[in-house]
Design a protein around this nucleic acid. Structure first.
Length: 190
DNA sequence: TCGCCGATGTTCT
DNA sequence: GAACATCGGCGAT
């Protein structure tokens, strides 16, 4: 994909981008899989890190579309986001779950389990499986160690629901999943 | 299968 | 000092 097409793909509102990312293949240094779950966080969204303005942690959310925003969650885990439309100051898509397809042995070793359904079925789990840390914060998704392969052909079937693990704006159905996947972080209600 | 809890960096009030 | 876009281990059900 050309550089301009790459930027155009990400420079959309976070809900549209989250939906469009489902079915993409994300790899980091040869480890990864199919994105089966993502959440949208908007600039005017009380649940978003960018809601109260820019600070040293969320600075990447205000950067160019198509960069990674990696932050530490609960002081323990790393979480991976994709930055989207720069005109909507500070919005991003949280990558919540992958269906593991690449580098399975290395991901099993990093996660300490052989259960493939446990490798990447959560935002903290997938960063550990792929070796993602704060060192990757601010890097472009268009270059090493990242590799993102966007889906070709018709959009896959999508399910939606409320976001996970938040206390504000809990009613917004801004969690998107690949319909029928066995690799979600939590089940989607029917 | 459920709920509770500890770990612990960074921001918010 | 409290809250937080989480996870895994534990004991009870």
């Amino acid at each position: 994909m050309s550089r301009s097409a790459f930027a155009a793909f990400f420079a959309r509102n976070p809900r549209t981008l989250a939906r469009a990312l489902i079915g993409s293949v994300l790899e980091v240094d040869g480890c990864g899989g199919i994105i089966v779950e993502a959440e949208a966080y908007a600039h005017n969204d009380p649940a978003s890190h960018s809601y109260t303005g820019r600070n040293s942690r969320n600075a990447r959310m205000f950067g160019p579309p198509g960069t990674a925003y990696v932050y530490r969650s609960y002081g323990v885990h790393w979480c991976l986001n994709f930055v989207c439309d720069p005109k909507q100051r500070g919005c991003a898509v949280l990558i919540r779950a992958l269906e593991p397809t690449k580098g399975l042995d290395r991901m099993r070793a990093r996660r300490g389990t052989d259960n493939i359904r446990q490798l990447c079925s959560g935002p903290g789990k997938l960063t550990k499986a792929l070796g993602i840390t704060g060192a990757l914060d601010g890097l472009s998704l268009d270059a090493r160690p990242f590799k993102l392969t966007l889906p070709k052909g018709p959009l896959p079937p999508i399910v939606t629901g409320p976001r996970i693990g938040i206390t504000r704006a809990v009613e917004q159905p801004w969690r998107f999943g690949l319909k029928g996947s066995r690799f979600h972080s939590r089940r989607f209600a029917k």
